[in-house]
Design a protein around this nucleic acid. Structure first.
Length: 332
DNA sequence: GCCACCGGTGGC
DNA sequence: GCCACCGGTGGC
């Protein structure tokens, strides 16, 4: 909402953003790049995790913004960028490493398909300087959450770290760089700090699972809440918290996004609708490239003459939901 | 019996 | 594709 003023989020530029880490999963070469010069957009938010031994914790995320001429020469890459990563949706640039390894106890999963293994945990909290683009460690989770809450309106600079590192400047080497030893995840900007006495927990799932992470809120009572619905119910049952000022706006279950793009198992293809002869859907022919699916679904679509840019740009276009049956119909 | 962790589903 | 929600379950 407040993102429009961001330099890096302007629609024109967003399309030209590159994902620096789009092939990060393959390890090696691309992992050793430093954030490149001034073309890197400043405010990626990241979280560092590690599934190593929890002594070299940390995972990182970073974000770059390339000039359009780069992209013009690599349309394939550009395609990938759009699918895999939307820098405009991220906006801010922080990263997190756990500066306190003691806090990141090794966790193990215990599922049939996952021969007991150590799960990643947040290794450190890191934020990228909006000026020099170097990653700076944030000493505590609380400080990180404080910075994250306003990262869009109040970009982070090396000077911001003077609160805990009086001497730090953009001339100092980065606290962290992206290398193969860490899992980087880009956090979402402007997430409210949890209410006093509450804790927001981020649990990284094992690689190859159906999702990257889960967020839990732990109430002062110790109760763990795992969705907005549960929070709402809990607050209704405990009006004392509401009286103290706790409100729904202080909760967000948004999870960071891993830069390793195959960390999460892809969801198998789902037909939009099961083939069903009783449904008129199978008797409707395709008329045009635009709007037909909406007709088929019996739902109003965007006005046919409404430009798909701007207000609809973030929405999926109907044709992407084409089922197998539809595809067969269309091709015949 | 609890609960942390995971998969699945539905919606957009 | 992403997100939100919630049921299931193995290990404790």
């Amino acid at each position: 909402m407040e993102r429009d003023h961001l330099d890096l989020a302007s629609p024109g530029k967003a399309d030209h953003n590159d994902i620096y880490g789009s092939s990060v999963a393959s390890r090696g070469d691309n992992m050793k790049h430093e954030p490149k010069d001034s073309r890197i957009s400043s405010r990626a938010v990241g979280i560092g995790t590690s599934n190593q031994n929890h002594k070299d914790v940390a995972a990182l995320a970073e974000e770059e913004e390339h000039n359009s001429d780069d992209e013009d020469n690599h349309s394939e890459d550009a395609q990938k960028q759009l699918v895999l990563y939307d820098p405009a949706a991220v906006g801010a640039g922080e990263i997190a490493l756990d500066a306190d390894p003691v806090n990141s106890q090794p966790r193990r999963n215990s599922f049939p398909n996952y021969a007991s293994r150590i799960l990643p945990s947040v290794g450190a909290f890191t934020v990228q300087c909006a000026n020099c683009f170097k990653w700076r460690l944030i000493p505590t989770k609380e400080k990180y959450e404080e910075i994250r809450e306003h990262i869009l309106e109040q970009p982070f600079y090396c000077e911001t770290a003077h609160e805990w590192r009086a001497e730090l400047s953009c001339d100092d080497p980065p606290d962290l760089t992206q290398d193969g030893s860490r899992l980087w995840a880009i956090d979402k900007p402007n997430i409210a700090q949890p209410p006093p006495g509450w804790e927001r927990l981020l649990r990284i799932r094992g690689e190859g699972g159906t999702r990257f992470a889960d967020v839990y809120y732990v109430a002062p009572s110790g109760k763990r809440l795992r969705s907005m619905v549960e929070v709402e119910k809990y607050l209704q049952e405990h009006p004392d918290y509401v009286a103290q000022g706790v409100s729904m706006s202080q909760f967000s279950f948004q999870i960071p996004r891993p830069l390793q793009d195959n960390y999460v198992k892809k969801r198998p293809y789902r037909p939009a609708l099961a083939p069903d002869e009783n449904e008129p859907v199978n008797r409707i022919t395709w008329i045009a490239d635009n709007g037909d699916t909406d007709l088929r679904l019996g739902m109003p679509g965007p006005p046919l003459f409404e430009p798909l840019s701007q207000s609809f740009k973030k929405k999926r276009t109907p044709s992407k939901r084409m089922s197998n049956a539809d595809a067969a119909c269309k091709s015949s």
